[in-house]
Nucleic acid binder design. Sequence first.
DNA 1: TGCCTGATTAATCAATTGATTAAATCATTT
DNA 2: AAATGATTTAATCAATTGATTAATCAGGCA
Lengths: 204, 204
Amino acid sequence: MQKTRNVEQDIIDAARKVFQMNGFKEATMRDIANEANINLAMLHYYFRSKDNLFYMIFDEAFGLLYEKIAHILSDDKLDIFEKIRIIVSEYITFFNINPHIPLFIVREVIRNPEKIGERMKVSINPIPTFKTFSDQIQEQYEKGVIRQISAFSLILNIISLCVFPALAKSVVNQLSGLTEIEMEAISENRKKEVADFIINSIRI
Amino acid sequence: MQKTRNVEQDIIDAARKVFQMNGFKEATMRDIANEANINLAMLHYYFRSKDNLFYMIFDEAFGLLYEKIAHILSDDKLDIFEKIRIIVSEYITFFNINPHIPLFIVREVIRNPEKIGERMKVSINPIPTFKTFSDQIQEQYEKGVIRQISAFSLILNIISLCVFPALAKSVVNQLSGLTEIEMEAISENRKKEVADFIINSIRI
DNA sequence: TGCCTGATTAATCAATTGATTAAATCATTT
DNA sequence: AAATGATTTAATCAATTGATTAATCAGGCA
């Protein structure tokens, strides 16, 4: 009772894997075809060009990343500290599941800043998100709850602390000789540790 | 009175630029030859293969990064807070001058973990550096000066906060629409801001 | 000067890769 | 069953790229 396979979906799954792992240039249509268990001509039959396939994957990846933080930042039922804890926890989990996404995005932006920059902008709803969070920080600062910091800096610091360790995981792995399981435990620990680190830093 | 040009040095400079910008696979020997104002055959005449050239550039980049932090961490005349301020300042400066190095290294480790992992290890003197810093943290914790944190976590956080913004500069640039001069000013500001952020976080 | 060694060049090779084509196969409808 | 349109395949093309080769050039030395 095998369901007839969905070739398009197989291709997208294969493309996601191959593109995220290797980047646009190093990914080959033949690799994607193999991964999807079809041949090269079929791949071009379903998605006319490498560019087509690629932008589909890129938009999806960037959308996932952006939506996650935007959604939390603009939630007006959460206080600053709750937001920090949730973002840190969700991002660290996300990057454990999708370890190649941050490098993938950074790499492609560097390769083609104008074109990729455009695509990122269309994914972004023009930042009421940012305004909400920024006001919230200002408010808490005026109440004497936290030190002065710009929303920009705080968000950049949060993302830095979540993304970079995921990005550099293979480097740390190689240099430290830790096992996969040990790395996993450290990463799990970091959900609390990083949130505490950030909160301790801004709380007066 | 033109000094006769040093072709080897021209090649190394060209290779550094092209490899760091594009990574191993996307960099072409023809690009390097053009950048060095020689032709392809000359390039192979001086450095037999692309691999040869590449590892020279990789070792240099990784060595620079590592030596910088190792040197400061193992200096026993500096207290923890001084170390943090110096590392943050020097790394932020360094990544402004060499914006492609972090991505370059991460990318190549992912491309070829075993081979590149080996090369990184030979650049590293087996970490008395790390021991010194670790002891120092433990000591300050016992004196009640700082909160408990592992040397590993603290170093990872410091590096994350210095490297990631440099890495993601092109993304931020595209999304924010800030000018080069504004980005430069923010980066300069961050030297103090990031050091404060870290120190506030660990100081009791 | 004439030779010799190292530097330089143009041409070419083989492998890889995105893309296309034309033929073959399959499924659905009449 | 025949026909029609969608799917699948193998073969091929042109461009790119790392590497090599053979020929040429430059300049120091006998």
